[in-house]
Structure formats: C-alpha cells, structure tokens
C-alpha cells in the first residue's frame, strides 16, 4: 500500500565500503628470489624456452607445463634442470639448489601473472586524435553542455591515469563489484535523485537510497530518511539519474570517438 511509512530519523545505513578492501590476489613469492631467478633463467633457459618462458624453437612452454604447475619450491623443476631431458635434447644444468629455487620462484611468478587476470596490466591506450577528441567534446558528443576543461575537468589528467580516466567518463559512478574491488564510496555528484509524490500531493525529494518494485527510500538534503511502500504507480516516483546521459552514450559512441576523447582528456593536466 502507498501509505508513506516515514521515519524521519537517522539516515539509513548504506553498507560502508571497507576501506582499502581489495580482492587482488598476491602470489606470495619472494620478489627478490623472483628477480634472481629471472637472471638465472635468462642466462640458462631462455635460449630454448623463450625470453618469457612461453616456449621457443626447441623448448616447450613452461608456463602451462604440468611439471612446473606441480612443482613446489623446485622439487620437480630441480630434477629436470639437474638431469636434463636427454631424449628431447635438453642438456644437464648442474646449478646449486639456491639457483634452482630461484628459477622455480621466477616460473611460478610467470604462472601467477598469466593466471590472475585481476593483475593484468593495461598498456598504452592513448592512441586517439586529441584534436578530434576536443571537437567531439565540444560538438557531437555534447560533453561541453555539462563539463568544461577550465572548470570541473581542470587538472583531471593529473588526477587519473588514462585507463581510469576513460573508465570515469564512460561510467562515472563506481558501483557494485567495482566499488567493492576499489573500496571507494559513492561520489555525491553521481548520486541519483528521486521525488516521491503522495496522493495528497505531498512531495519528498532527496538522494535515492534504494528502490525496487515494492519500496523506495530517500534521504533529504536535511538528512532525513523516508521510506515508502510502492504499489504499482502509487505513489508517483520520479527517478533522475545525473548520469543518464553517460549511460545513453554507451550505445552511441564509436570506439574511435572514445579513443579520441581519451586522447583529448589526457591533455587536461
């Protein structure tokens, strides 16, 4: 029923993101051992197995190697290094145990880097035409109707690296999974506004706290929380998302326009 079940008390608790909570896995390997292992690998192994351990002309890929995957601290890799694989043309390498352990650490790090997608690095994404991006910003993209390089975007490129900057213009609201990953709270400028109009004509406007088919809740500018039961289109609920234009753009942009816009925005240091 549409009765305005209100309790003008403390604002409803949004689940507070846990500060710094991150789900990025770590390999747990000793970084110094990995680096020492890289040196030993490059001088003894890379010639056959490739500089990146993905296999070369005469040696197999070591990252997907079952021997490497089964290995614990060099216990399987060591045997192959010390004994070689004479049947396959691999010579023996009489390396001391410490160096074998270092090679193992290096290879396990390579496996980790391949398998853990949340650690993947985005390379240079600034390949667009900054001039075309600027023209799009002021023209077809209509970005200039809300934003300006001298105003809200002043110094934006100093604040974010290019991939983050691009993400932020595609979808400025960091929510759900991404918010959990980054531990960031909501940006007040991106918060959705809602107006609830009761049958009496009484209106409540504020920040949208939650909405589903059965309830809508908001917090007014004064900090008062209100919650309303919904029954179809009663009471009237008007949701205004300040980012609606950004959402609409997702089906309009071409990839070239996105790249050009990124190339332009990275100049706003």
């Amino acid at each position: 029923m549409a009765a305005g079940a209100m309790w003008g008390q403390a604002p409803a608790a949004r689940p507070a993101p846990r500060a710094g909570m991150r789900f990025r896995p770590v390999s747990g390997l000793d970084a110094a051992a990995v680096e020492r292992g890289r040196t030993v690998y490059e001088s003894h192994c890379a010639f056959c197995h490739g500089a990146n351990a993905k296999g070369g002309e005469s040696g197999p890929d070591l990252i997907r190697s079952v021997t490497v995957l089964d290995d614990e601290k060099g216990d399987k890799i060591g045997a192959v290094v010390l004994n070689g694989r004479p049947d396959k043309g691999m010579p023996k390498f009489p390396l001391p145990p410490a160096q074998i352990a270092d090679i193992a650490a290096f290879l396990h790090q390579k496996v980790f880097d391949a398998a853990q997608r949340s650690t993947y690095q985005v390379h240079n994404i600034v390949t667009g035409d900054a001039k075309a991006g600027e023209a799009y910003f002021n023209g077809a993209g209509k970005c200039a109707s809300c934003h300006s390089p001298a105003g809200d975007l002043r110094g934006i490129a100093a604040k974010y690296d290019p991939p983050t900057l691009e993400s932020r213009f595609l979808m400025p609201r960091v929510g759900g999974f991404e918010a959990m990953m980054s531990g960031q709270g909501p940006d007040p400028r991106t918060q959705t506004k809602v107006t609830v109009t009761l049958e009496s004509g009484q209106k409540f406007t504020g920040r949208l706290d939650s909405i589903d088919d059965f309830n809508v809740s908001l917090t007014t500018a004064e900090g008062e929380y209100h919650s309303f039961a919904r029954d179809g289109d009663r009471p009237k609920v008007l949701v205004e998302d300040p980012l609606q234009t950004h959402l609409d753009m997702l089906t309009r942009y071409t990839d070239t326009e996105i790249r050009n816009l990124t190339a332009y925005l990275v100049t706003l240091k």
Partner: peptide, 10 residues
Amino acid sequence: GYGAAEKSAG
C-alpha cells in the same frame, strides 16, 4: 590465460 583486461563500463 585471459590475455586481456576488462573494465566495466556500466
């Protein structure tokens, strides 16, 4: 592995 990184865009 995945070979690519993905960023959610809304």
